[in-house]
């Protein structure tokens, strides 16, 4: 059996640095030493196999115990691809977010906004054989977070994806087009490359939305791809 293929190198500026001074919590939590780059072994080449049997999906976050959540109903859909443009099928996508008033269903969130009892804020879906996913939710509200003077997070949805290789693990956030808070947000702006940053903004998509029922947004994910060329520094 030959050695596992490497992963394509991270494109310069396409990822936020761990040391992102505008985001206060990074000050004491970013490692000062560079990580050691290793050639992938089976450990890094493979990944946990997440299946709907063990991790059941729930794709409609807009209803809780039969009751409708408050707010603007949305459908979010798109594809999960790798950097070589290949769809990532059967990819588990975890979703979490604040309710329409900007409040998380969590005791740590003490923001003085009404909590919607019909919105728990957790979803889980799997991509189909072509890498497509979609789910129904409520547009999340903005909320204050004390990072700097009068700091408010832009509307956003959190995602956690499990690809088919250890290095494809992705935790990220999706933003909404036209949000004036984006220009002020140190988390969004931590990614140096403007195009890479702007790819975190979903696109309004009237084909994904449903007439007289929900607005639609398109958001595609790209996970790291394998490099077909041999490793530069085989170990």
């Amino acid at each position: 059996m030959s050695d596992p293929a490497g992963y394509l190198k991270v494109a310069p500026g396409s990822q936020p640095p761990l040391d992102s001074p505008g985001y206060g919590s990074t000050h004491k939590r970013h490692p000062k030493q560079a990580p050691i780059r290793i050639a992938p072994t089976l450990t890094e080449s493979l990944a946990p196999r997440m299946t709907e049997r063990d991790y059941p999906s729930f794709a409609d976050m807009s209803v809780h115990e039969g009751r409708q959540a408050q707010g603007e109903r949305i459908i979010v859909g798109g594809r999960v691809l790798d950097e070589n443009g290949k769809p990532v099928p059967h990819c588990m996508v975890e979703i979490w977010q604040a309710c329409s008033t900007g409040r998380y269903h969590h005791p740590l969130d003490t923001h003085d906004a009404p909590m919607d009892p019909n919105f728990k804020g957790e979803g889980r879906v799997f991509t189909d054989a072509d890498g497509n996913y979609s789910f129904v939710s409520i547009k999340p509200g903005a909320y204050p977070w004390r990072n700097h003077r009068n700091a408010w997070r832009p509307n956003h949805i959190h995602y956690s994806l499990f690809g088919h290789g250890f290095a494809q693990r992705l935790v990220t956030q999706m933003y909404f087009p036209g949000d004036p808070l984006l220009a002020l947000d140190p988390v969004f702006n931590a990614t140096p490359d403007v195009a890479a940053r702007n790819r975190l903004v979903a696109a309004l998509d009237m084909d994904i939305g449903k007439e007289e029922w929900a607005l639609g947004y398109r958001f595609d994910f790209v996970l790291r791809g394998r490099d077909a060329t041999p490793m530069e520094n085989p170990q």
């Binding site: 394509l8 991270v10 494109a11 396409s14 990822q15 936020p16 985001y23 919590s25 691809l81 790798d82 950097e83 070589n84 443009g85 975890e94 979703i95 979490w96 977010q97 604040a98 998380y104 269903h105 969590h106 740590l108 969130d109 728990k120 804020g121 957790e122 889980r124 959190h158 956690s160 992705l170 935790v171 990220t172 956030q173 988390v187 969004f188 990614t191 890479a196 940053r197 790819r199 975190l200 994910f221 790209v222 996970l223 790291r224 791809g225």
Partner: peptide
């Protein structure tokens, strides 16, 4: 490569929802 991997963002303080 044809595409660039999506930028990561912090998991934040409220990941306990999942």
């Amino acid at each position: 490569s044809k595409l660039v991997a999506t930028a990561a963002q912090t998991i934040g303080p409220y990941w306990a929802l999942i």
